[in-house]
Design a protein around this nucleic acid. Sequence first.
DNA 1: CATTCAAATGAGATCGAGTCTCATTATCAG
DNA 2: CTGATAATGAGACTCGATCTCATTTGAATG
Lengths: 186, 186
Amino acid sequence: MKPEPEVILFPKHARRPQQFKAWLSAILQMFQEHLGRQGLKLTRQREEILRCLMAAERHLGIDELYLVLKKQDPSIGRATIFRTIKLLQECGLVAEVGTANGRSKFELKADRPHHDHMICIECSRIIEFQSPMMERFQDGAIRRHGFVALWHRHEIFGRCRDCLKHPSSEEDTKFRVGQADQATGG
Amino acid sequence: MKPEPEVILFPKHARRPQQFKAWLSAILQMFQEHLGRQGLKLTRQREEILRCLMAAERHLGIDELYLVLKKQDPSIGRATIFRTIKLLQECGLVAEVGTANGRSKFELKADRPHHDHMICIECSRIIEFQSPMMERFQDGAIRRHGFVALWHRHEIFGRCRDCLKHPSSEEDTKFRVGQADQATGG
DNA sequence: CATTCAAATGAGATCGAGTCTCATTATCAG
DNA sequence: CTGATAATGAGACTCGATCTCATTTGAATG
Ligand SMILES: [Mn+2]
Ligand SMILES: [Mn+2]
Ligand SMILES: [Zn+2]
Ligand SMILES: [Zn+2]
């Protein structure tokens, strides 16, 4: 089999301030244009939320976002974060990632290649993976059925490499799983 | 490219009573054994819920299940349905299928090949598809990352063949589906 | 059979992520 | 600037899902 790409790192621009600034303003402009097209406005809060997602080097949940943003702007409300995340998803700048516990996380999509996720039910780690061949066969199935795909969700739940090594990790006992009946279970 | 399987129909045993009865008791026994192994009991309600899922020829939501079951047993409670569905998922007899509106549906997994789903955001139809090659590459990615998969969720959202044909006279209503989908009618 | 007791049930309380309301504030085109 | 209108934050609300608890039931036992 052909080698497939290994890991998708989050952008590390945060360590190169001028590069980050340029990147931020480019993305902000895209956001503002999208907003403008619908008669909406770019507010201080919307800007901060997007900046936070761009600076993050991991997937963030609503509450994490809320706590981080609250440090700069103690008056920010959860509702605004929900509303803004929804807008960012609508314009394709941000994507939702499921978790085993129901609280979604979010990631910047702009300037990052498409990938899917493996989610560890023990330590909650999210592993990003790419498989162009897999996507190719997925597209084949979609075409075969005369379907037009708008988005997809492909999430694999299980145990990560590290949690398999450390057998005693007692931390997250919430996620009880019945049994592994197949390789990738249904 | 190699031909891949086309459609996965729900079992049509319901029309052949003796075959259905034999099938039902075989599956019931599997369920009872699984329950017994954990000191749990097979109740009238659990039996009825499983029977209902086996007789269904489409994906069922909790409320659909509740309404159907209530006809035979007006005293049945929603909590029991939630509890039983969870048990059935744990022992691998039933799988959850996401929808665009957040209310999951459920399907029997026993005696059916693994497949994934395309979900129409216009008519809520759920199209089942199989792609062994896609699964193969997925498994490759999983192995490459030293991950052990317990289950996965691969759902593609978009518009189905039929909804693409129809001039979309109906506006892009935010899929507030009450319980629109009837018997998957063609 | 009847006995026994842990498991299961249904009604209703509760939880909580996400949404909505509304009075106030901010954006931005002119 | 100003005015029209969108956005905000606090908190009420929604509603699927879970939990509580008094009562009922399954099934093992003799
Ligand atoms: Mn990701
Ligand atoms: Mn299915
Ligand atoms: Zn882990
Ligand atoms: Zn459709």
